[in-house]
Amino acid sequence: MRCFALLLPLVLIAGLARAETDPADAARIASDELEAASVALAQANSARDRVKALTEVVHAYEAGLTALRAGLRRASIREAQLGRQLKAQEGEIARLLGALQSIGSGPPPVMLLHPEGPEGTARAGMILADVTPGLEGEVAKLRADLEEVVILRSLQEGAAETLQDGLAGVQAARTELSKAIADRTDLPRRYSEDPVQTALLIASTETLEGFASALVDLQVDGLEEIDLPDATAFKGILVMPVEAEVLRRSGEADAAGIRRPGLVLATRPNALVVSPVAATIRYRGPLLDYGNVMILEPQPGLLFVFAGMERVYGDAGQVVPEGSPIGLMGGNDPEIGAILSQSSDGSGHDRTETLYIEVREGKSPVDPETWFRTNKDG
């Protein structure tokens, strides 16, 4: 269990270190993160709370793979930069090598002999004494650049095995997590879903707004009082439920000119989505053309809608704690060759899945960025 307590601090420390290290060191640190995740996965079966432990393992793998991709991308960019520099300096390097060769080619008396006699010889010696350190400095810089190129190329050539192990590890962790969630019996339940009532509600729904509004009005039987933290205390500081980039903000038009009140996020395939707060599951399953949808109710009248997942976890009526897995994004993990290709071209266009987030207060949608931190001004 101690390993799980260290996992997230490790990721944070490594993240700080990456900001201050060169590309090669950044990639090595990322590899260490993946190794730590592998160790944690091996220990997860003995954890008392397997769902929590495996959630941390999946996050650790995702963070390590993200960091490794970033490190490889930086390494590739740096290698290309050095290559361009060395190419542009070919003439200068040739002259440098020629000068060094001529300085070291003859015996000292010949090198120091000057046709103008002792005075000229003295001046030549002084010039040589001034020039030689500069030439040596240029040689040292050239040697360092060439050594860095060798290191970066070696790192990239050896990355395939590390990536393969990481992708296999995160897939195993996701599979174990799905099993652990299926076996979970410890979640409190506020009510039991009426499948007929839910089916009728879906059949009569034409929009997400209509469905969410109907949920607000829907009375459920067997409601139990379960104390949940006041969600308004976290307004504006909630962490995003998945590692992602914002594609479209609230009210921004898409390619078809459609404007939605929520956020559209770009995620990597199979990314884990978690509950940002403790909440009751009001709905989970397919809805309209949104794919699988999860609707959470942190408190009466407040709904968080997450749409577009491949798989959703839990049952309507259950109360999930903050950070609990609620779903997985779809898609397929890219092949090793594709990841390395994306790294080498510096694009990193590997966020192929989209998650839609909508927040509703009462029956009205509000800008999710009034609740979630998205680095809007960053």
Rank of each mutant, 00 (worst) to 15 (best):
I93K: 07
I29P: 00
T55S: 03
A47L: 14
E33T: 04
Q81T: 10
R48H: 04
Q89G: 15
D32P: 01
E33H: 08
A44Y: 00
L41P: 03
I29Y: 07
A19M: 12
P108S: 13
E79H: 10
E35S: 12
G64F: 11
P107Q: 10
A37H: 03
L97Y: 01
R69T: 03
L112S: 13
L100F: 12
K52M: 08
E90S: 12
S46G: 10
H59V: 11
R74L: 03
A26G: 04
G91I: 12
A60E: 04
R95I: 03
A60T: 11
S102V: 09
S31N: 15
L112R: 15
N45P: 00
A40C: 10
L82S: 06
V57Y: 01
T55Q: 11
G71P: 00
R73G: 06
N45E: 09
R74E: 06
A19L: 05
S105P: 00
G106W: 01
L96A: 08
V51Y: 00
A17H: 02
I29D: 05
S76L: 15
V58Y: 01
R50H: 01
S102F: 14
L54K: 15
I29K: 00
A27L: 13
A47S: 05
E62P: 15
D32V: 08
V39R: 06
A17E: 06
L113W: 10
L54S: 13
R69K: 08
V110Q: 03
L34S: 04
A30M: 09
E33D: 07
L82K: 12
G106M: 12
E56V: 05
V58R: 00
M111D: 06
G83K: 13
Q85W: 09
L41H: 00
